[in-house]
Structures are given as structure tokens and as C-alpha cells.
Design a protein around this nucleic acid. Structure first.
Lengths: 216, 216
DNA sequence: GCGCTTGTGGGGCAAATCCCCCATCCATGA
DNA sequence: TCATGGATGGGGGATTTGCCCCACAAGCGC
């Protein structure tokens, strides 16, 4: 059974090129094209491709957002990023969004095919230079269960504030409880969020529950 | 041992297609076909299949009734619904009738196979969009009774928005995902919080995790 | 001592949140 | 047919968040 593919790129020329390149492969069938993120989501819904080939720079939403949405709504649809961007940020964001592959546009056609085929079988293809980023990142995490390391990055006072934050307490309420200025609470909150790479109280609550810092 | 399958659909063409699709699988053996509900029950009695692939729209009785009857008389026979209907009502009725799977006809062939294989081993395959309905429904009931009322007070749309909110998604992002105005998202959020007696996103995240609406 | 971290605060600002008000459209049911 | 509820959206405003800038005192290590 051929891999059913959806092409997403805002440049018709690029899509045409990809179509030329890919449709000559007997195990690949292009079942749709989209030029915007919203369109991509719609068409993915309609045709349920096996794999979506997703550009990142799209006119409405980023391909990252589109990927997130697609993975959320159709988890079985694999998304392969095909983009000019090779920097760390886009790469990791795309992975977090659920991409099953990441190929820079400068890659050889064979590599794109490899990525598509891998994605179709539930595997993941990463362009070597980017795979290296991932490996590096992994090695930096010393995973022997040590998510704790992040927590250790917090000072005692910060951990204390964290428990309040996690329970949904507002800055002012925490300030009253700890008998410090709301501004200091705010200060601690900033430090906590930066250290844990969180960006909202909601994320923080979820994080704290995951870590067992508080009970759900 | 191959899974012995009974196909029930009033369209001969559909049965043929299914036969083509399924009989190519070495672990599936089609042992009968029926075009009406009564016929399905008769043949089920005669051949005792492992799995019945059941359409809902049948000329005499509905596939739901047929399923109910088959499960009553031959509890060991698994029934998988294969239908164009994706609405809540048919889905739940089919489950109540004893179906072991529910696959919309638009699903990928692999999903149908997955469903058949799951049913054959006593498991249950539900098409993701429908499985979600079930989970939501499940979460709404049972439990120490009293919070149930709260969640039940939410409309379907509100529950949908709730899942986004619980994941820490901002109003604007939710608006993009649901293709509605941020103001409407805001409106839903207000209603949700009032109904659940919550007063911040943090409380909402915790609540949602406690209720299993999202994973921590 | 000097540098560093920690804990404590302040000011500012854009954005988001939270909570009201209002309206329209539509489907469903009494 | 009319009422109701659900979904959609707009306006406004008070408050909170989130993220910068800054300072200063205490303690600790080198």
C-alpha cells in the first residue's frame, strides 16, 4: 500500500517540484496539497494522509502550530518537516509539536524519501545535523531518572514558593502567607519559571503535579 | 488460527470490497456474508464467527438491534460496527448493544483490520474521534457522585474548550485551533469557570487533571 | 577582600486574564 | 409559535501575569 502524502507549502512551485519528485515513486501517492496551515489541517482531516510534508514558513500559522494541531486531532498522521530552517529552535519546537521527521530543503531527494517512508511506518527520520542536536541535548540531560536536577536548580525558598504557585495561589496571597512583598514573590516566580523553562501558571501547575510536588 | 469473520452489509458492492480487502490478510477468514439483520443473526447462529463486521443501516432491523440480538444469543461472538455514522447517538447505542469496536467507513483499512484483530482477541477498538467521546462520557459519570453534576453541566463545546484550557493553552491559541473568535473562547471559559466554580486557569488545570480530562 | 548566590524589594509595561455588559443566529422543544 | 438554551461575537475595565530593568544586605567560598 502506497504511502498517502499531503504536501504543505505556500509556494506552488515547490509543491510542483515535490510532486514531480515524489509521485514518481511507486510507494508514494500524493493525496492532497495545501498552501496554508489552516488548509493543511482541513485537508488532513478530509483525506487522512499517512504523512504530511510540512513547510514551516506558512502565511497564516506556522507549520509548527499546524503540526501541533494535526497531531492533536489526527495522532495517526505523521508529519515530516521540510523546511529551509536548520536552527535548533525550530527543530526542537517541531519535535515537541509531534513531528516524525525533519528534513532541510537542501537535503538530497533520497533523504526526503527516506524520511517519508520512515514516517509512514511509525519511525522517525532526522537529518543528520539535526539528529546530532537531539543527541547532544539528550546527553546533557543525564536521564538516570534525574528530572530532579531541574528541581535541584531551585533554591529552598523557590521550592517553597513553587508549592504555593502550583496550588493556584496568587502572588498577593503567597506574599501574605510568607510575609514578604508581592514583588518578591513575583521575583521568585520569575526565577522558577526561567529555571524550569515554563511560561505560565498553568504549565507550572501541570509540572508540579507531574513531579508530585503537589497532588492533583 | 485465522479470525473467522462474518460480513454484514446490505450493499453487495461493499461486501465485495471488504472481502477483497480482508481476505488478503492471512489471519482473517471470511466465513459468511449477510445483507439483512435477520440473515446476520441466522448465519451467526449457523457459522459462529469470531467477529461480525456490522453495518448499521440495514433494510429490516438496524445493525444495532442485530448486534444486541447476536450478543444476547451468542455472547462469545464479537461485533465490530462499520458504518458511515459517526455521531454520538449511534456510537453509544452500538456500545450499549455490545459492540467490541466501532469504525467509520472513512477510516483507513488498517484501522479496520486493527479493529477486527482487537475484537478477535477480546479487546476493543474504537475510532479515535469516537473513543474520545467515550472517554469524555466516562469521565462525566461515576465518581463520588457529586462532581459529576458539575461536568455534566458543561456543553460539548465547553468540554472541548476545557481540554485546551487545561493544557495551558491561551485564549488566542484556542481561538486559532477551533477557528472561532478569541472572544468566544473567552465566553466559553467564563461559562466553564462559573459552572465548575473555578476562578483561575491554575485551578482549572488541577481540576482537569484530577478528573482525568488531561494527563498531568 | 572579592565575587558569587540568595533573598529581599522597587518600577515599568505589554499582554493576558477575569468578570461584567450586550447582541445575533439557530436548533430544539414545550 | 414562542421560549429556551447553545454557540457565536463585541465592548469595557479592573486585575494579574509575565518579563524586563534596577538595588541592597547577608552569607559563603576562594
Amino acid at each position: 500500500m502506497a504511502t498517502r502524502l499531503l504536501l504543505v507549502d505556500d509556494h506552488a512551485v515547490v509543491r510542483s517540484g515535490l510532486r514531480m519528485l515524489l509521485s514518481s515513486e511507486s510507494d508514494v501517492e500524493i493525496v492532497g496539497e495545501a498552501s496554508t496551515a489552516r488548509e493543511a489541517i482541513e485537508i488532513a482531516d478530509a483525506v487522512r494522509p499517512d504523512v504530511v510534508l510540512m513547510d514551516i514558513g506558512l502565511p497564516d500559522l506556522s507549520g509548527i502550530d499546524a503540526t501541533r494541531e494535526i497531531k492533536k486531532r489526527f495522532p495517526d498522521v505523521a508529519v515530516v518537516a521540510l523546511t529551509i530552517h536548520e536552527d535548533e529552535e525550530y527543530f526542537f519546537k517541531m519535535l515537541e509539536a509531534g513531528a516524525s521527521g525533519y528534513v532541510p530543503k537542501r537535503a538530497a531527494p533520497e533523504e526526503l524519501l527516506t524520511a517519508v517512508r520512515a514516517a509512514a511506518t511509525g519511525e522517525v527520520y532526522l537529518y543528520p545535523s539535526l539528529a546530532k542536536l537531539l543527541v547532544t541535548d539528550y546527553l546533557n540531560q543525564e536521564h538516570p531518572g534525574e528530572e530532579k536536577i531541574n528541581l535541584d536548580g531551585l533554591t529552598a525558598r523557590e521550592r517553597e514558593v513553587l508549592t504555593y504557585l502550583a496550588e493556584g495561589t496568587s502572588n498577593d496571597e503567597i506574599a501574605v502567607s510568607l510575609v514578604i512583598s508581592p514583588k518578591t514573590v513575583e521575583r521568585h516566580r520569575e526565577n522558577i519559571m526561567r529555571k524550569l523553562n515554563l511560561h505560565s501558571r498553568s504549565e507550572l501547575v501541570r509540572y508540579a503535579i507531574r513531579r508530585g510536588i503537589i497532588q492533583a
